[in-house]
Computed example of a mutant assay.
Amino acid sequence: MLSKYKPDAFNIRMNCGADVGQSVFHFHCHLIPRYNGEMDNHKGGRMIPKKGKY
């Protein structure tokens, strides 16, 4: 998979506990591929282009 899509980096995101929105209590982790140039500003670990103000 890595050789096909060739991400430049990854965000690792975990939701652990009801107070962060976890509703099924098991190990819950997202590995999100990131690509150089997909966003103008990665400040604060922003994960979705054009969302949030930092």
Rank of each mutant, 00 (worst) to 15 (best):
S23L: 13
N11T: 13
Y35S: 04
M14H: 05
F10D: 04
P33K: 03
M47L: 12
L2M: 00
H42G: 00
G21I: 06
R13K: 12
K51L: 14
M47A: 11
L2T: 02
M1E: 09
K43P: 00
D8V: 02
V24E: 14
G44P: 08
R13G: 07
H28A: 04
N41E: 12
K4E: 07
E38G: 02
S23N: 13
N41G: 02
N41W: 11
G52I: 03
L2R: 04
F25K: 11
K4S: 05
G45H: 10
R46L: 05
C16I: 13
F25I: 11
Y5R: 07
F25L: 14
P33Y: 03
M1F: 05
A9D: 09
A9E: 01
R46Y: 00
P33S: 02
K4L: 11
A9Q: 00
H26I: 07
G44I: 13
L31V: 15
H30I: 03
P7Q: 02
H28R: 05
K50C: 06
V24L: 14
G45W: 11
I48L: 08
G37F: 10
L2F: 05
Q22C: 10
Y54S: 09
K6N: 07
N15L: 14
D40Y: 10
P7K: 01
I48G: 00
Y54K: 11
